[in-house]
Write a protein that binds this DNA or RNA. Structure first.
Lengths: 133, 133
DNA sequence: GTGAATGCAAACTCTTTGCATGACT
DNA sequence: AGTCATGCAAAGAGTTTGCATTCAC
């Protein structure tokens, strides 16, 4: 794998959990998933693995405004998506939009910041909650 | 002021602090500001005032991915901006971009979510840090 | 054998809540 | 008077860190 890092069962289990759980997961979700599989990986190891993977660019760390970090696997293709959050039920839906990406790219060229990444979160109400409102 | 809410010195001081401190401030910054002015407003009252003001739409609450909430006065005009964060020194700069807003608006019309708000954060390196790197 | 990774528990930060006191209408 | 807001302190949630032990290379 990557230079300077060892493979270990806990680490592999965290990676497997991230892959399986997919988009926009919390550290707690990973812990619950692993605990359900009788794996006694400590919370600290999960955070340490996430921090490492984020540093290596293998997972994306972000934040939906609910005071807890979210993670998801980074696509090797470089493609990425953003998230819509339902403020009623908390549901999170991914979306992607080329026009939005283009606007960001164009903006990045105009500013004196060296823009390396961007996070976009849409807040609103999901179809289900709209229907039952 | 608004129906059902009383005026009080602590509340006014929090409002004054938000106005004076401006863009992208933390609860701690407000507390420090008030403490420096010999005002012994409790942290809890600051949070309660912020929660109220956010609910009334007078301040905007958001989050820069550093595990702490940010606040800023909401412009009555409805205009709003977003933020660029320097990942080296932590500096936060506001920016606005019409093309970006238009892309969001257009996207909102295409999705089945009822989009009510959006947060955009650009991460990168500010000019100062680029120069000293 | 050596250094990295782990698990546990304690520490920390940010935020919220319970409760008795004090203030506004 | 009655209600709402305050301050303090304690409680919570999420995340990080210290340390002895275990494991990979």
């Amino acid at each position: 794998m990557e230079a300077g890092h060892r493979t270990s069962a806990p680490r592999d289990e965290v990676i497997e959990a991230i892959d399986r759980l997919g988009c926009s997961i919390t550290a707690r979700a990973i812990a619950d998933h692993l605990r359900a599989r009788e794996s006694n990986v400590g919370l600290a190891s999960i955070y340490r693995a996430l921090e490492l993977l984020d540093r290596l660019g293998l997972v994306q760390r972000f934040d939906l405004g609910d005071g807890g970090a979210r993670y998801e696997p980074a696509l090797p293709s470089g493609e990425h998506h953003h998230h819509m959050v339902c403020d009623s039920c908390g549901k999170v839906e991914p979306f992607e939009d080329d026009a939005l990406e283009r606007a960001i790219t164009h903006l990045s060229g105009k500013t004196d910041f060296a823009v390396a990444a961007h996070d976009i979160t849409l807040h609103g109400e999901c179809p289900d909650c709209r229907a039952s409102a």
